[in-house]
Nucleic acid binder design. Structure first.
Lengths: 192, 192
DNA sequence: CGATTCTTTGAAAACAGTCAATCTGTGTGG
DNA sequence: CCACACAGATTGACTGTTTTCAAAGAATCG
């Protein structure tokens, strides 16, 4: 289970073996089955979570009770409700598993201590956050300017490792269109 | 011109007078008139910019050439193309002035040096970024789950200091709906 | 005043959402 | 191995909303 994280972090950050082991030693291992929650609305998000294996989603519910997916996350991604994690306020979102998953968790405090001891870890987190921020901004651009068809095309291009792994109606939710519409788009699409 | 920044930063960050002066001394002052560009697509964004006075917008153009507004920014906000700034790649967006504006700029390198010398500045930037990230994520939720009317209501609630300062068609662009639709929504709205 | 710039309006067409029913595949328990 | 239940996908008809197009009206600025 650690092996996967070792490979990932070695590629992305310039850590000494000691630093790497220190990080691993501070982690909490967790396995969740499909449909189990990592976080529920109203709870305070306390962990930085790395996905070793599996697939999760973060979603919120609207006034009508419908689920709206904020993001998907698979192997080698991080997931948490950053807003709740940074502010300490109750989370507005849920995080649950779409597949049986293996996770590595660090509490906020533990991770902060690690960042103090290991400057490269802080730098790594900054880089990761910056990329995540850019992706989020890009998604806004897509949300306000693409047609439904373009959104779908963009999705399968951007996430080839996700789109065939999650139900269609969840992709529709992620894109902000109805599952029927997405289904029709996909049908046209196949004719080409 | 510095006075405004002094007030702002004193309230938000715990800096010594020396540190504050060091930051100011490193800044570049700039005045731009309405419609002038701070950044154009294809250029590399090199500055962290604080808005002393005025109103700017960041936008991208779609395939059809239409402008899609990523964000607005007014006094006491920061603006830049973070993606270009962090990656060093050409910007995909434009930033221009909706009003005559007064700005304080720091080059990426200058700002990095300041952050090294002044840890509290780095902490401050992290807090600012975190809030900005949360706002961006929240906007995605709105984009994929709110009706146009709800989007507009939310906008005027969230940005009371912006909505009566920028043309309606730009708000429409920001919200991802046509100007005609927004106009009609607003008319209904007035009847209540 | 004249020229932009922005807003408003109407009518038609395109589009996406909703509803309701059916179909398909998968996994579970008997 | 079958039957059933469940999750998800698909389809058609219909409804409602939004976009588009075109034109006319305000408002603002030099």
């Amino acid at each position: 289970m650690f092996e996967s994280f070792r490979r990932y972090i070695t590629e992305k950050a310039n850590l000494t073996p000691d630093e790497l082991e220190m990080i691993l030693a501070a982690s909490i291992q967790k396995k969740l089955k499909k449909k189990q929650y990592l976080l529920q609305e109203g709870e305070v998000s306390r962990y930085n979570t790395f996905i070793v294996k599996g697939c999760l989603r973060q979603y919120r519910t609207g006034n009508d009770g419908a689920e709206h997916i904020i993001r998907f996350a698979v192997e080698d991604w991080w997931i948490s409700d950053r807003e709740s994690l940074t502010t300490g306020l109750p989370s507005k979102s849920y995080i649950d598993c779409l597949e049986d998953s293996e996770l590595l968790l660090w509490t906020k405090d533990t991770f902060n201590e690690l960042k103090i001891k290991i400057p490269e870890l802080r730098a790594f987190e900054e880089r990761t956050l910056a990329r995540s921020f850019n992706a989020t901004q890009n998604r806004i651009h897509i949300a306000i300017s693409y047609t439904p068809e373009e959104k779908y095309q963009n999705f399968i291009q951007s996430f080839p490792n996700i789109f065939n792994r999650v139900p269609l109606y969840m992709i529709a939710s992620y894109l902000g269109i109805s599952r029927e519409t997405l289904n029709r788009i996909r049908k046209q699409f196949a004719h080409k």
